[in-house]
Simulated assay, not measured.
Amino acid sequence: MGRKLRFATTAMLVVAAGIYINNTNLLAPHRDGKPVLLAHRGMAQRFDERDLKNDTCTAARMLPPSHDYLENTLRSMRASFEAGADVVEFDVHPTTDGEFAVFHDWTLDCRTDGQGVTREQSMAKLKMLDIGYGYTADGGKTFPFRGKGIGMMPTLSEVFTAFPDKKLLINVKSRDAGEAEKLASVLNALAADRRRTIMVYGGDEPIEVIRRLTPEVRTISRAAIRSCLIRYIGYGWTGLVPAACRNAMVLVPINVAPWLWGWPDRFLNRMNGADSAVFVLGPYSGGEFSTGIDTPEFFARLPQGYSGGIWTNEIETIATISGKSKD
């Protein structure tokens, strides 16, 4: 009995040592360099994030502005790249005249002087709207951007033309597979090398279509990221990368990251080997995915010398802290 116990103990120690060696960050090659910064919505006005719901008009909860950039505009995107962003995120909606409008909200009523569902409009009509109309930081007493956003809602093709060699992340706002087919047609009209610089995320149904029709494009959906992280936590110690983590944009809440086998360098190397890009978010608190790495306190929670991706709503702040600022 003693011999069997010793054998079992030795076997367990060997297995534990193997798992440790296969996953310890101490033995993983470290990728030098500065982190990859993703500017969510470009340079944008911040708002009070407390008690947000799906129908909350965030433009009416704007914080006192520190700049005059409006999200999802060419001017905002350009400023983000100039500030140090490597990737800019923006939102799209199909229009009735065959374009894709770059605009965040499902409806026009909050931010603009228009009304109705965004995707039920023509691009010609959307171009006439004032996208700065609804912003207020004092409960409607003043509207600092009213009249300054007329004609500033861009099309997807205008974004591609303005930034022909920049990395972009497209957010599909619907769960419409038909919209994804239209977007895939637009993406497939680009050169294959260009498609590799574009990522797409959104609902499960459209992302499944994009993943199938445009294989060069990295994708992620809410279900896919949960599957990726949960499965990796479950068996990533083996070195195997789950299918949901392959050719993907892997979003990692900063409070989940320490649970990932080999975090950070071995995990980053495994994802890179699976042709995936990793971006760290702010803490996940249940229900909805988290905010970005937007404060010095959140940035300080990243590993020393971290060179993976960072998702941020405060590109100027994080670019400065990370040493990516071009000023």
Rank of each mutant, 00 (worst) to 15 (best):
S66H: 12
G239F: 11
R75G: 15
E179S: 07
A124D: 02
E179I: 03
V88L: 15
Q45D: 07
Y133R: 00
D327E: 11
K4S: 09
T107E: 05
N54G: 12
L108Y: 06
A248N: 11
D97V: 07
G139I: 06
R41N: 02
F267D: 05
S185K: 14
D51A: 14
G33D: 15
K53F: 05
V87N: 05
R226K: 10
I19K: 09
N188Q: 14
E71N: 13
R266H: 09
R266E: 08
I310P: 03
I19S: 05
D51P: 02
L268Q: 10
G202N: 03
L168G: 04
D68L: 11
R226Q: 13
G116F: 12
C110T: 12
K53H: 13
R222A: 11
L302E: 05
D130E: 00
R231I: 03
L52F: 13
V252I: 15
G305F: 04
A248Y: 06
F143E: 06
P242R: 00
Y306D: 04
H40T: 04
N171I: 00
P242T: 01
A124K: 14
D113Y: 10
T320A: 14
M153W: 01
F299E: 08
L38K: 02
T95K: 11
F145R: 02
E205W: 01
R6I: 13
V117Q: 12
V250S: 06
T291V: 08
L240C: 07
P64G: 03
M12P: 01
N255Q: 14
A177Y: 00
H30P: 01
T56R: 07
L169M: 12
D204E: 14
L240A: 13
N22G: 10
K4N: 09
P283M: 06
I210Q: 09
S325R: 12
Y235R: 09
G234D: 09
L302H: 03
L63E: 14
S122D: 06
V92Q: 07
T24P: 13
N272H: 08
A8K: 10
T24W: 01
V14E: 05
F103R: 08
G286D: 01
V241L: 04
E316D: 06
M1A: 15
F298M: 15
H30N: 03
N313R: 09
K148H: 13
L168Y: 02
M152N: 05
V256W: 15
G286Q: 05
